[in-house]
Amino acid sequence: MLYYIYDGSFQGLLTAVYEAYYRREEPFDITPENNFSGDLFARQVHIKTDGDKAGRVFRAVKEKISPRAIKQVYYVFLSEIMQRETLIYCYLKKGFKLGKDVDLYLTDKTVHEIQKVSQKVGREKHRMLGLIRFRKLVGDIYYAPIEPDYNIVTLVAPHFARRLSDQNWVIHDTRRGSAVLYNKKEWVLAQLDPGREFRLSEEEKDYQQMWRGYFNSASVPGRTNTRLQRQFMPVRYWKYLIEKQEL
């Protein structure tokens, strides 16, 4: 059984797809190196990430399949689900055969799965655009910790770069230890220690207090329906919501 081992980056995965076509050697599975438990009979090919090859696959997907296809593939990659690589590879194989029509084959398991997972990621991204809460720190930095299911920090960054373009901000995925940092000009992805402590600015508590007060009084008595509330805003997201924290 042939295994392709890559470095876990999106570019690396696209390079692996390139190699699979170039070598005409079907991988049984594509796995990131930190996840490979190598079995006895495994034959391994180590993929060296190559920006040029990755770029060619990227463009080919966009042009020969569709812009939607490349977006879906990227979202599925960010989902970090088990065996995402193989799912992506199978979808791309179908895509190169069927062209842009591939996404009409909704009864096909691979196509269905790709769309389902990428929709889930898209939905969480959209949800996070609303649920991210910045705290103002001393030194005029707005800091937002998050713990999303999927690895979506880079997906939400452009939105905030446009919207909050005149303030310094940080969105910190505390589970993955990664963060996007924005300095009023551009954003970058960086590593950020999950345990780091921050000092709130002086006025921060007042606004938090007012927001909590606003939130609590916005509900209409007699219409309470916490089940619906939790359906839209699952409890796992409450940890960093100002309005859901007691003082």
């Binding site: 606003y214 619906l228 839209f232």
Partner: peptide, 15 residues
């Protein structure tokens, strides 16, 4: 964009 949901399940988007 909805930013929160109140106890009655309504979306909070605007102040």
């Amino acid at each position: 964009i909805c930013h929160s949901w109140t106890d009655d399940g309504r979306c909070v988007s605007l102040l």
